[in-house]
Design a binder for these strands. Structure first.
Lengths: 188, 188
DNA sequence: GTACGACGTAACGGTTGCGTTCCGCCGTTT
DNA sequence: AAACGGCGGAACGCAACCGTTACGTCGTAC
């Protein structure tokens, strides 16, 4: 019964509004204005701001990242880091993600939604990446997948989302090499 | 002329309010209420919310971190990571920092203030740490100090401020060992 | 062609915050 | 003793947004 095109307009309006003003200052009225839609159309779909954002965000966040398998750990790692760095340099994502992360620190529902989306996929990616490398003999058997995830995503997130410094291909290579060295030695 | 005790009350109220509701929803009225102070006392000191927060934050952020020098790179690194992890696990800091980081993405003035505070100190710490280690022959001469900072702070920030998973002393050791290995190999 | 229902518009009363102003109080300075 | 000035409190007009309601339009299903 609800018109699909209008739902889409609202969803993209929410994303853009989130990027521009953040969750804290996001207002239903502004979303309606931006989407060219009446407030009623929004309240017909969701009962309040939190519910609306949660539904839209979790929908976007749960789109799976393709798990790399290039045949070598170095290749997998570089591909993964490339994908993540591209994502974190995307205009909207780079605004929304840190904002929601910060919001999650004080809103358990947002935290849970993000954790489910992030952790599930990232942990899976990390475990697959490490598992493949261990199976190939490229990494020690006792390699810690969680540690690997921290080492891979941490510097990328820090550099791109926090320090907000551009990351060139050469930087990416250096980073990948460093992470590889770190994990190779991790059984010491 | 302005009473110092009142200024202090306002400052701490701002910090607590920032931690609880974030910059986006921080209101002068709430700060005044929390500080047990009239709005006039606030407007007598700052002309608006942005100016107030910037002044207070930059004041706090510019308190220098003691630069470690334990005599060995491993010692320096572990000490630094311990200090940073302690700071990031502090209740108020762990709420305020990601929030302001996210806000910085859309407010150039906040971005500049944070960059100045963060970058200046972190870069200095990174360069000193790496410099000492290189001088002692513990790291290759061409070690990239920026890369080192990314590798040291990235995983910590990711783990504590983003993923919000506790970091035990053993995890810290593993992380430090991994970073050391990464940097040792970075001249390859 | 009639009934249904989602749509936009407009308005509602209520809340919150803005930045400003005026007041009376009170401690300090002179 | 008098003047000064920061203080809290209260109220101002204004703006934004909340969540809800009523209304008229329009496309679709029956």
């Amino acid at each position: 019964m609800l018109r699909g095109d209008i739902t889409v307009a609202i969803r993209t309006a929410v994303m853009n509004e989130l990027a521009e003003v953040g969750y804290g200052r996001l207002s239903i009225e502004a979303v309606a204005r931006r989407a060219g839609v009446g407030k009623t159309a929004i309240y017909r779909r969701w009962s309040n701001k939190l519910e609306m954002v949660l539904e839209i965000i979790s929908d976007v966040a749960e789109r799976k990242v393709p798990l790399p398998d290039t045949g070598s750990f170095a290749g997998d790692l570089e591909l993964l880091m490339m994908i993540v760095s591209r994502a974190l340099q995307h205009r909207i994502a780079s605004q929304i993600i840190p904002d929601l992360m910060a919001e999650a620190a004080r809103n358990p529902q947002i935290a849970e939604t993000l954790q489910r989306a992030l952790r599930t996929h990232q942990q899976a990616v990390g475990e697959k990446l490490v598992g493949q490398a261990v199976a190939r003999g490229e990494l020690p058997e006792d390699t810690d997948a969680d540690l690997a995830v921290d080492l891979i995503l941490g510097p990328l997130y820090w550099r791109l989302a926090v320090a907000r410094q551009p990351l060139g291909d050469d930087d990416l290579e250096k980073l990948a090499a460093a992470v590889t060295a770190a994990l190779r030695a991790s059984s010491d």
